[in-house]
Simulated assay, not measured.
Amino acid sequence: MFYMERAVSPSTGAVTFVVVDDQSYVIHKEACDFSLHLRARGRSPHTQRSYLPRVGRYLNWCSTRGIDWRTVSLGDLARYKLGLEQSRVRRSQHLLTGKTVNAHLTTVCEFLRFCAAQGRIPREVADRLVEPRFLRYAPRGCQRGEHGEHSMIRARVLKAVFDA
């Protein structure tokens, strides 16, 4: 099973976070590189601290089901989403909110897109996570479509329904 650990550079004292195997304490290479990528993009250590446990949860979910996280199917990710929606918060025993489930899905999609961009997983795995969507009204600053009528974006396929 994987979990997040805080890591401190002995030379600079900079704090980062890594995902390690709980038996061997071996650092998960792709998750570590994802953490460094987040830092390089200017994301705060707090963002790393919230993203990496989600990556670890995804890796654990795949591992316990015998699914290779590198070639996960859309159906597998839909089952992962359902599992998240049925999960309970440890302290309160309430179900995870739609917002929390979406935060997990966003993190997993970012992680898989990062791995695909680095050539560590097949590009098709990341491509199946998004689909083209057309916006009738584009937000301020968004480029208009070729004919100025509609804007196309790539939207995440899997989303949780927000609580009422």
Rank of each mutant, 00 (worst) to 15 (best):
V26F: 07
I27K: 13
H28T: 14
H28E: 15
K29Q: 15
E30F: 12
C32T: 15
C32F: 15
D33F: 10
L38H: 00
L38I: 01
L38F: 03
R39Y: 13
R39W: 05
A40T: 09
R41D: 06
R41T: 00
G42H: 00
R43V: 11
R43P: 05
P45Y: 12
Q48H: 09
S50R: 15
L52Y: 07
P53F: 02
P53C: 08
P53M: 04
P53E: 02
R57F: 13
Y58P: 00
N60H: 12
N60W: 01
W61F: 10
W61N: 04
W61H: 02
S63G: 06
T64G: 09
T64W: 07
R65I: 08
R65K: 00
I67N: 09
R70Y: 04
V72N: 12
V72M: 05
V72T: 07
G75S: 09
G75R: 11
D76P: 00
D76E: 10
L77W: 09
A78Y: 03
Y80H: 04
K81V: 08
K81F: 04
L82A: 07
L82K: 13
L82S: 10
L82F: 00
G83V: 08
G83F: 01
L84S: 11
S87I: 05
R88W: 11
V89R: 14
S92K: 04
S92A: 02
S92H: 06
Q93G: 04
Q93L: 12
H94V: 05
L95G: 02
L96Q: 04
T97Q: 02
G98R: 07
K99M: 06
V101K: 02
